[in-house]
Design a protein around this nucleic acid. Sequence first.
DNA 1: CTCCTAAACGAACGATCGTTAGGGTCTAAG
DNA 2: CTTAGACCCTAACGATCGTTCGTTTAGGAG
Lengths: 191, 191
Amino acid sequence: MSARRTELTREAARLFAERGYHGTSIGDLAKALGVQKGSLYAHIESKQDLLYEAVREGAEAFHAGLDAVRDDLPAGERIRLALRAHLRVVAEQLDVATVFVREWRYLEGDRAAEFLAERRRYEERFRALFRDGRERGDLRTDLDDQAAVLLVLSAANWAYTWLPADADTDELADRFYAILADGIRGYATPR
Amino acid sequence: MSARRTELTREAARLFAERGYHGTSIGDLAKALGVQKGSLYAHIESKQDLLYEAVREGAEAFHAGLDAVRDDLPAGERIRLALRAHLRVVAEQLDVATVFVREWRYLEGDRAAEFLAERRRYEERFRALFRDGRERGDLRTDLDDQAAVLLVLSAANWAYTWLPADADTDELADRFYAILADGIRGYATPR
DNA sequence: CTCCTAAACGAACGATCGTTAGGGTCTAAG
DNA sequence: CTTAGACCCTAACGATCGTTCGTTTAGGAG
């Protein structure tokens, strides 16, 4: 993919994140690149292509984040690292992450189904961390892992709305995890 | 507000939630109501009005939910009830809640600022539950309430994406709260 | 029967939408 | 000097957008 084409995708992701897919016109995009709108069609076949590519980039980034989590650690640690990875992707690729999380639903046809499969796979990988942790005793054995993964993934998925691009995401993830690990109530024995 | 006008707002919220504000045309809306699109302008002044009203209904519903939380309970209980209230609003008024959480940003002019103020107020009320709880000793005194409220509100705000309309939201809120209260790690003394 | 009101009709408006077509300019390699 | 390819331009296409407006319809009240 040519350098120009990459720039196009990046700018498209930025505008889609800022104004939404349907709120961004090809004309807006062309203006942002200092070009006539017809010129864009030397690089793309349709506006949908740009959405699709941004979503795919997001999927790749999130999965790559999980790939880097070592699998020889206790479940708690792996969850903490997975949370770190997720928040880092959101902060470092905020536009792409926003499109992945919020604008994907304007994908048409097979591409919407493709996204859903990709997202389900991501959630499944997350869920496995909790399930394994419970089964191996790293986490409490009576853990409601269904609810736990929903809680964590919800927080992760909502992060794009408030995470500043320059945030210390590792520290933030650790703070979230600390609450998640021992609770807010304070009857827990100190670690 | 006439009955017809109320119906219009409800249908608009439904479509905005389903296809997004910019993804819904006045023509779509008219067709859903079995009417010519020009006819809608006997009831509204602009498409923006419909968005604004849906957002305001959402704000009202969420605040009303918090209003019903008794203030003579320990902080933990109040948080649990606040979570119940929030999820109940999402499930019972899914369309309006979705527009409030996701589509508000297409509000123009002063109305966007008005929304932001309203949301900030809601978050502040939530935050107070955690802060008070920590200060009074209902919650652990070393609680990171900033992170805690972010975690809870994130989960609450993301709920519209997965909450089925017929879910038992009270039970779900309690399950979330149970995890939040004692953590996932299992070193907590049983309650 | 007449009057009033709420509601919808149907045609049209200017603007903007995504997309296409054909031609022009530059650069770098053969 | 020629060729190829990347990049962009201008002009236009049919479709759809939100909105306006004068007219029509239906039902209830007087």
